[in-house]
Design a protein around this nucleic acid. Structure first.
Lengths: 226, 226
DNA sequence: CACAAAATGATAGTAATACTATCACATAGG
DNA sequence: CCTATGTGATAGTATTACTATCATTTTGTG
């Protein structure tokens, strides 16, 4: 039986902490379900309120708007991913092996994590694939950044860039390389599903993920080779 | 004096060809200006119609909705970029040099091209940086793809992937590598402007673009090295 | 257990958005 | 000249993205 855990989230992501109440947890759980099902554009607080048998007004007490809700969910995912990387490479000494494990974790298909019963990580990974870029591709990106809304992503990126620098301290593009690979990790899956001529990954879902791991692993390895 | 040119666009991108009439050209010209200024979310046909002294109804006769308008503009950019690559590498024999020129063209900051007087390529490049991913990150991506709306992007990607394969026919991820680099080419600029801890590119605008060229050039070169 | 405080629900209302429809007017080409 | 096409003017609708108010329920604390 897994230990129940709670990830610490930046307070500017919400008005009332959704992890603290029944309604809050319902909002998180069902917004994942509904964004996955409808996509961000068709997702509304009205539809969500009907789904969970509550009201728009109540949901607005937790999240300022649907954009902040998305940023919250996506940030939760990055924070969770960083936690999993930390956990897994904790007692590995060899920097290169640490890097390999990290690449494995960012490129693998996610399953349900029993430590977080309200979050369907499989659905959330699909949301990351389809919607994550929309968190920052807005006119308010600088404001949002000022309030620390992207700290989860930046911390994750820096964490992995540090490992890159452990392997090769002279490689000058560690951050660019990692942010590029984090992007490719989900973008290539999207392309394999919808615009297959933009990738070389084909076959079953498992094969796509496996091939994507090999592509990114090789890309990173060669890029930072001394 | 430059020759005036017209890029052939997929007919499913519009209801009436905006390149054929005064109003159409005004719509293209000012939608670039307005999306650049307001961002896609705040851009509306109402605001555009006021700006060009026309009406919403008239604009709807050219484009089905603002999403299609964006796809049209972004596709125009990819088509233009491919034309420029073709033009520039036309009489270069060495595959590696052809590839280098292509990477230069996808990563360089764009200036105004007098062959297309209605299009402000500098503003359009900013739109590509901020909004391009939104063309396909939607629930209707498969429908849109069926109607050929992404052909411009796919053709460009394949064109460059072919050059990659000329340099190294055994590299198995030519398409993935190119789509990843096309993405990085604008994403890294966005990060340098708004989320600088996600890149290693800093300094003046010119330095950011130059460093990004070097990053991507090195990434590709090492990736496809035999 | 009582009571105050906090959370939720019910309801209403508003400005803006994303369209669609209709009809009149302009004009451009054959 | 006259017809077809394009454009403008105007109106209307359902939905969205909120905000506000007040009643009711739940909860934590003394």
């Amino acid at each position: 039986m897994a230990t129940l855990l709670k990830l610490q989230m930046n307070e500017n992501l919400f008005l009332r902490d959704p992890q603290d109440t029944d309604l809050g947890r319902k909002i998180v759980h069902h917004s994942i379900q509904l964004i996955d099902e409808l996509g961000l554009e068709a997702f509304t607080f009205k539809k969500l309120s009907v789904l969970i048998g509550s009201t728009e007004a109540s949901i607005y007490r937790y999240f300022e708007n649907k954009h902040k809700t998305l940023v919250y969910l996506i940030t939760w995912y990055w924070t969770w991913l960083e936690y999993r990387i930390d956990f897994e490479i904790n007692n590995i000494q060899d920097p290169f092996e640490r890097l390999e494990r990290a690449i494995m974790l960012i490129t693998e298909k996610k399953g349900y994590d029993h430590s977080f019963p309200d979050v369907d990580e499989t659905a959330l990974q699909r949301i990351v694939i389809n919607e994550a870029d929309k968190t920052y591709l807005t006119k308010q990106v600088d404001d949002d950044n000022k309030y620390g809304l992207f700290k989860g992503y930046k911390t994750l990126c820096n964490r992995i860039a540090d490992i890159v620098s452990e392997v090769n301290p002279d490689y000058p593009y560690a951050h660019s390389l990692v942010s590029t690979c984090l992007q490719a990790a989900h973008q290539q899956v999207f392309f394999a599903n919808h615009l297959p001529s933009l990738t070389d990954h084909a076959g079953s879902v498992e094969e796509v993920y496996k091939r994507n791991f090999m592509f990114i692993h090789e890309l990173v390895t060669k890029a930072i080779q001394k």
